[in-house]
Each structure stands twice: as C-alpha cells, then as structure tokens.
C-alpha cells in the first residue's frame, strides 16, 4: 500500500515538474509563437545551478563545491540562470526569421550538453553532482515525498497564476497580437523583437525552475540524467495535445501525456528483456505519430486557446 502511494506520488511530482516546463513553453510557443527546441538546455542550466548552490558534496567529488544554500534560496537563481541563457540567444535570433530561433535553440542544448560533460571542475563531468538535498526529506517516508509533491504543486499553481495574469494583461495581448499579425502590432507602435525577447526569457526562467525541481527530486544531476526525448520533445507533445495558448491546456496536456508515457513505460517494463527495448522504440514511434495526428485532426488540442472576452 505504501509502495503504491509512493509510486503515485513520484508520478504526480514528475507530472507537476512537466507542467511547469509546459507552462514555460506555452508562454513561448502558445502565446508568442516562438519555437524552442532546446528546452533541455534551459532545464539543465537551472538544474545544475540549484544543484551546485545546495549540494553537500561527497568526499572526492570533482565538481565545484558550492555554498550549501537552502533550496528556497537556490530555486529563484535557477530561474534566473535559465533566463540568462535565453537572453543572448534570443537577442541574436529573435529579430530574424522564426525558424532561426528553433535552429539556434537546438544549438544551445548541444552546447550546454558539451559544457556539462567536459567542464569537470564545475559540473563534475560525467560523474555529475550528487548529494543534492530534497526538501522535506527529514519527514521520512511517506510524508517527505508527499510534502515535496505539495511544494511542486504550489510552484505550479504559482506559475499558473502568473501565466494567467500575463495572458490577460496588456503585455499578453501584445504578445498574441505579434504572434497573429506582426505588421498590425508594429503599426500600433509595438516593438515585436523586444516583446518576443521578454516572452522567450520568461519561458526559459520557468524551464530553469523546472530543472531545479527535477534535480532536487532526483537528488542527483549528471549529463545522462536528461535526455532530449523526454526533456524537449515530450514537452512539445504535451503542449500541442493539451492546447497551446491555453495555460490550463498546458497543465492538462502535461498530466495526461505523462500518465500515458508512464503507463506505457510500466507495460514495457513487464515484457521480457529484448521486447522491453523494442517496446520503448515503438513508443517513440507512436508519440511522433500522435503529434502529427493532433496537428492534422485537432490542432487546437484538448482545450484550445480561449481569447479573453470571447464567449
């Protein structure tokens, strides 16, 4: 019974972290039409920032020994780190064609991956950073993980409230206007490049924060802990499936797709060795197919964008 509870709590915690990521992507793609295919890079930067600021290193650990801050001091800086990574790349590519941002963000993810793998003095290289404290661990099982889940849920609720406020604000209306008709937005005196950059940086901050929550949940962060399929691609599927442009859709998509992903993972795990590996590839195929089918037959997702004022 307790095991089942812990399993459910783990799934929900990860779903919550994905919800934070999807909300960040919704701000970028859903609201503003910016394609970020490098979520992995922003997640990693946030994760490592928080990890290095809080970890109590094992003896002989190669990575930089941080100040051992509490999580609540480190998490905001993880968001800042995600934003700081987004700032230069956004400033360079957002004034150009939309596809250039997509290509540049793939590059960012690649550079971050090369960096964490090779700069052992800072990140511990392939060994990564261990000894990252998980908040509320002192409460023991099962209350520690439950409390962490509540913390993640509270962060997601906060991000949701902020995202909703953003979407309804004049700022959010301007973002949508730029997305839908850049010339018209320009004509009423808005500077699209500057608004896009703000949206891109804010979204990246959400991703950095999600990375921090992930690192503290795993209690470890290393170059192999993150994978482009789960950290970037799955987030896109979640947002498109849930309904891009709609913050509730983003959260719904995150939870629903994560449930499917985890369930298929569990089913694949029941199969004998070789078949289990094959099932994982089949799942990759189906998720690619699902994305395309949604784009073709239900482009608005489960719950589409609702424009403020429209009934």
């Amino acid at each position: 019974m307790e095991n089942a509870l812990l399993y459910a709590v783990t799934l929900l915690t990860l779903a919550g972290i994905y919800a934070a990521l999807t909300l960040g992507l919704n701000l970028q793609w859903g609201l503003t039409g910016l394609m970020n295919f490098g979520a992995l890079g922003f997640v990693a930067v946030g994760a490592y920032t928080s990890a290095l600021l809080t970890a109590t290193p094992a003896p002989g650990a190669a990575h930089l020994v941080g100040p051992g801050w509490p999580w609540w001091a480190a998490w905001p800086l993880a968001a800042v780190a995600g934003a700081l990574l987004a700032l230069p790349i956004g400033a360079i590519s957002l004034r150009l064609r939309a596809d250039y941002l997509a290509i540049a963000t793939i590059g960012i993810a690649e550079i971050v991956r090369l960096f964490v793998r090779n700069e052992d003095w800072l990140t511990g290289g392939p060994l990564g950073v261990s000894g990252i404290p998980r908040p509320f661990e002192g409460l023991g099982q099962p209350w520690g993980p439950v409390a962490y889940l509540l913390l993640v849920a509270a962060v997601v609720a906060l991000l949701y409230a902020m995202a909703e406020a953003t979407a309804k604000s004049p700022f959010g209306r301007t973002l949508r206007a730029i997305r839908d008709d850049e010339e018209a937005a320009k004509a009423v005196g808005r500077n699209p490049a500057s608004f896009r950059l703000q949206a891109f940086v804010l979204g990246a901050a959400c991703m950095g924060l999600a990375g921090a929550m992930l690192a503290h949940f795993f209690k470890f962060m290393g170059p192999d802990a993150l994978d482009p399929i789960t950290a970037t691609f799955l987030v896109w599927v979640m947002l498109i499936a849930g309904g891009s442009g709609n913050n509730r859709g983003a959260i719904l998509g995150a939870v629903a797709i994560w449930a499917i992903w985890a369930a298929t993972d569990w089913i694949a795990g029941q199969l004998p060795g070789e078949l289990a590996t094959r099932a994982a590839y089949l799942r990759l195929f189906l998720i690619g197919l699902a994305l395309n089918l949604i784009l073709l037959y239900r482009p608005q997702g489960l719950i589409g964008e609702r424009l403020p004022g429209a009934r």
């Binding site: 939309a98 896109w236 195929f285 690619g288 699902a290 784009l295």
Partner: peptide
C-alpha cells in the same frame, strides 16, 4: 495537409516525422 498552415506548424510536424523514422531505424 498542413501546406496552408504556418511554417512553424510544418516544422513541428517534421520533428514528429523525424522521431517516427528514428524509431523505425531503432526497431
């Protein structure tokens, strides 16, 4: 079918196609 959609949607679609081809190669 997406020819009239924005280029961004086609780009995302091609991303899905990439994963499908990759999965078949793995399989």
């Amino acid at each position: 079918p997406l020819r009239r959609a924005q280029p961004a949607v086609l780009l995302i679609s091609s991303f899905g196609v990439a994963l499908m081809i990759r999965a078949v190669v793995y399989l």
